[in-house]
């Protein structure tokens, strides 16, 4: 009899416990501990908190004395890069001992280096070495290409060159993207961003080739930041100039390198024939990517006299640079 009562009470306890527990988690107001209540269905939606890049970007303190634009011409890429960077204050102005540096080349397409559709691997390597010599603790090279990342990095030669020069290459994987907030941006105020290579980064340097582009007319250092985004990038063409102005706002680099060793002067941005490429023999370093790009438009794409693409004015309106490069402080050096 006793056994029977105990069994009954146990069962009753289980019935009451399960009912009350289920009732609590489903009905308790949503602030209460363990509550799962969601009367309007909003609670079940994913909520990703956006990340932000540093307020002032990755730029170093501006200087009124030093040139904004260093232009080196010649054939020895290492010496040219060094001369161009020296012209704007030298690498030690930008990179301090212990810095973690992200170098962002343009490796958007699976093309071998001579076809001019990607950053020249030798220039990327020279830049990595320069940062290393300045005491950077770590140099990373990253891009999110249009075509298959592994194939693009291998075919362009950027992977081999970057690793041999002492950097680590970051290729995108599904878990590498986070939502980035860029306050003030027209289109990409919240957009998936290739975040993993940015974790812990203190300096960012862009290194972009000079390319013809069918829609925005020219793809250089400003458009280069396109490769840091994920998501539905194929919508960007609907307002490509607005997007490039947004990219300038999103990422303010330590400095940029315009790799004019080759110029893809037509059939851009993919190219594919040596006939589309000519020797540029120029490397530009600048703290102002609009000035660098405007220089490239006039002197490397040789489109001086044609109006600048609309994104220059849009970005300049936001105070992100000065496309009137001739009025900025320029230093031109002939190397060798």
């Amino acid at each position: 009899m006793n056994e029977d009562r105990r069994r009954f009470l146990k069962q009753l306890g289980a019935v009451a416990g399960i009912s009350l527990g289920a009732g609590y988690v489903s009905l308790a107001p949503s602030g209460w501990p363990l509550s799962l209540s969601d009367p309007d269905g909003e609670g079940g939606k994913p909520r990703e908190k956006g990340l932000r890049l540093p307020e002032k970007g990755f730029a170093v303190d501006p200087s009124n004395v030093l040139p904004h634009l260093g232009v080196a011409r010649g054939a020895d890429l290492d010496a040219m890069l060094k001369a161009a960077v020296d012209a704007i204050g030298g690498i030690r102005r930008f990179i301090r001992t212990g810095d973690v540096v992200l170098v962002k080349p343009n490796v958007a397409f699976e093309r071998s280096a001579p076809l001019g559709a990607t950053s020249n691997p030798d220039v990327v390597a020279a830049l990595v070495r320069l940062c290393r010599e300045a005491g950077a603790a770590e140099v990373r090279v990253a891009d999110n290409p249009i075509e298959s990342p592994a194939a693009c990095f291998a075919r362009s030669g950027v992977q081999r060159a970057a690793i041999d020069a002492g950097s680590e290459v970051y290729l995108p994987t599904p878990s590498d993207f986070r939502l980035l907030e860029t306050p003030g941006a027209t289109h990409i105020a919240r957009w998936p961003f290739f975040w993993r290579p940015f974790a812990g980064v203190t300096k960012v340097i862009g290194v972009a080739p000079v390319k013809d582009h069918n829609l925005c007319r020219a793809s250089m250092t400003t458009k280069n930041w396109y490769g840091l985004l994920g998501g539905r990038r194929n919508q960007f063409h609907q307002d490509i100039h607005g997007i490039i102005a947004d990219l300038a706002l999103m990422l303010r680099p330590t400095f940029v390198v315009l790799d004019g060793s080759r110029v893809l002067w037509r059939s851009g941005p993919t190219g594919g024939s040596l006939a589309d490429v000519r020797e540029g023999r120029t490397i530009v370093a600048s703290t102002d990517s609009l000035a660098a790009d405007a220089f490239g438009w006039d002197e490397l794409l040789e489109r001086k006299g044609e109006p600048l693409p609309a994104y220059f004015a849009k970005a300049a309106e936001r105070g992100l640079g000065n496309p009137d490069w001739k009025r900025t402080n320029v230093r031109e050096i002939q190397v060798g």
Binding site: F109, I146, H213, N214, L215, N234, H237, Q238, D239, I240, S267, P269, T270, G271, G272, S273, D276
Partner: peptide, 26 residues
């Protein structure tokens, strides 16, 4: 197609076309 039917600029297709000369003209 956005430019053909919706008065909206696009031509991503032409940009990414890998042949030279491109197989997509405008």
């Amino acid at each position: 197609c956005l430019p053909w039917a919706m008065e909206t600029p696009c031509v991503v297709c032409e940009e990414v076309c890998p042949t030279t000369p491109k197989a997509i003209g405008t």
